[in-house]
Amino acid sequence: MRLHEYQAKEVFAEAGMPTPESVLAESTDEVLDAAESIGYPVAVKAQVHVGGRGKAGGIELAESDEEAREAADSILGMDLKGYTVERVLVEQAVDFVDELYVGVTMDRGAGEPVAMVSSEGGVDIESVAEESPEAIAREHVDPAFGMHHYQANRAVYDAGVDRAVASDVASVLTTLFDLWEDRDASEAEINPLMITGDDEVVAADAVMNIDDDALFRQPDLAEMEEAAAGDDLEAKANEYGFDYVRLDGNVGIIGNGAGLVMTTLDLVDYYGGEPANFLDIGGGAKAERVANALDMVFSDDNVDSVVFNLFGGITRGDEVARGINSAIEEFDELPKPVVVRLAGTNAEEGMEILNADALDIEQTLEGAVQRSVEQAGGAQ
């Protein structure tokens, strides 16, 4: 479960994290009232589950009623990477001199949590990790003992954080790790953690994703789930019983198994494409289930092509193929190209059954992904 920024900041503030004064608003009048209450200048920030909100026009600064009204009218109701903005966070603007990144997640390769600090905050941290990995200081944490203060201090020192604020940044990192652990989070980050001219640190953004399987231990966070969803497709996925996560790309991905879907996501990225979603339809591939999956992916305006990565296990490949054929018969014409790769039990029989007039069929997963990336416009 992904929390919205305003929800994550509530959790952070309760833990003693320094956050700006803010008010949630759903209308222009509420934005103006909030701005007057907080005092100008303020930031008006779209509350949707996408990255790069600022670059996409989802964050505006306002120094007067007129500017706040313009920002509210511009952001509320806008389509932001496929999401309709229904709420904004009106927040006290921070006069900063530096921006940092701090985050905690699970390093599955190392089998341990990892805490991270970077002096290159305020930008896409994934780009920093790819282009300048040395700019991110990492500290692995033994889950049996938790994060020690010396580890937080070392990460801050390795990141080159100014000594005047190093202790406060280390304290924020320690608190963030404790929240990540205590709240059963899969990811927690602040980007940016702003440094003011008075050497104060402020969490100007907040990201927190919670492990769905642990929500029974987090009843207060579970209550936030409906408000956190904020997306018709994710609500539809819950209704259908799919494991679904919406992403920012344009290659739709459908598979029957989490491992298959993750592998497909990795290959889409490897061949220069950008995944639009994670969609695991689970065991079996009956016509209705496949049709529901296609309906979901076709409903995402960001999607330009779809790739199926399916495995015939208990459900044989020929049954999977019949399910796909039955599903596409519900469409007069497929609105977007669909590439299918089928493997496993009776895969050859299934490949022969698939409707080659409506679908693009590939023998290998690599070939299927490459074709789908090409159909979506090629490498980005």
Rank of each mutant, 00 (worst) to 15 (best):
A237P: 00
G283Y: 08
E63Q: 11
G230D: 14
S326F: 03
Q151H: 13
I59L: 12
A229Q: 13
V85Y: 00
Y101P: 02
V161T: 06
Y6D: 03
N277P: 00
N277W: 07
V141N: 02
I195M: 11
L61A: 09
I281T: 03
E349V: 06
T175C: 05
E348V: 13
V42A: 03
G146K: 05
A276Q: 03
G272F: 11
E36G: 09
F298T: 09
N355S: 12
E120W: 06
R217D: 10
V251T: 10
L24T: 10
D124K: 07
S119F: 10
R371T: 15
E189W: 04
R163I: 15
E26I: 09
G241D: 10
Y6I: 04
V169G: 02
T28I: 13
F298D: 09
E63G: 13
N238R: 15
I125Q: 03
E120T: 11
G282Q: 07
A343D: 15
E348S: 14
T263M: 14
S37K: 15
T19G: 03
D220E: 15
K9D: 07
S132C: 08
V202F: 07
L100D: 06
V307E: 08
W180S: 02
A203E: 09
M147H: 04
R2L: 14
V48E: 03
A229V: 13
V85D: 00
G197N: 13
R163M: 13
D269K: 12
Y270G: 00
T174F: 07
N256F: 04
K336G: 02
D73F: 02
G122Q: 08
E189P: 00
V88M: 04
S299P: 02
L61V: 11
V117Q: 01
L193S: 07
E200N: 11
I190L: 06
